[in-house]
């Protein structure tokens, strides 16, 4: 049963991710990105990380996707711009993609290298929110504070960048070369 669910979710995730990078319409890409994030969240559930699955759904499938859709709506970019394809990028993409896929397959073949327990034998460690809280506020206190500072700085930066200044509001940008 768990095996079937694993293959179902990983296939869904990979197919949705593949369509994200191939579709022309950014709205479709954002929708399929939701499917990818939900599939990854389901894999987290299979791994016993229930709290992280919830965080994944709330932050990624919620906030980040809303942000993406909002920007797509705001920019109103033309969906199908047919230029000549990006040949150097295409060649590099196919080459690097083949190498990465080969690496993943080799990793799968050499899986016996990892002498670890299987999913059924191992115990989930990050299952409870309590264990997260205890670890976060004892061992990882400094990173939590730093993450808070980072979020504050990011918020200030976004406000500053998003503020419409006088010289950038015109149609003709003042900065030309």
């Amino acid at each position: 049963m768990v095996d079937f669910l694993f293959y179902l979710f990983s296939l869904t995730t990979l197919l949705a991710a593949g369509t994200v990078i191939l579709t022309r319409n950014p709205i479709n890409a954002a929708m399929l990105l939701i499917l990818t994030f939900v599939g990854t969240g389901a894999l987290f559930v299979l791994l016993g990380a229930y709290f992280l699955a919830a965080v994944q759904l709330a932050v990624y499938a919620g906030a980040v996707i809303v942000l993406f859709l909002f920007i797509v709506m705001l920019l109103d970019v033309e969906t199908a711009r047919s230029g000549k394809p990006n040949y150097p990028g295409l060649v590099a993409g196919i080459g690097v993609g083949a190498l990465l896929v080969a690496g993943a397959l080799v990793l799968y073949k050499r899986g016996d290298y990892f002498t670890l327990a299987t999913l059924r034998e191992s115990v989930p460690v990050g299952a409870s929110t309590r264990s997260f809280g205890v670890e976060l506020f004892t061992t990882y206190m400094l990173p939590v504070q730093l993450a808070g500072v980072l979020l504050l700085i990011a918020m200030l930066g976004v406000i500053h960048i998003g503020k419409r200044t006088r010289d950038s509001s015109g149609e003709e940008a003042s900065h030309r070369q």
Partner: peptide, 22 residues
């Protein structure tokens, strides 16, 4: 299921993202 199944899915997902970036 062992760890290598999950690592393969992770690697393929990373490859898809990287190819898309290129």
């Amino acid at each position: 299921l062992g760890i290598h199944e999950f690592l393969m899915v992770s690697g393929l997902l990373f490859a898809i993202g990287f190819v898309g970036l290129l």
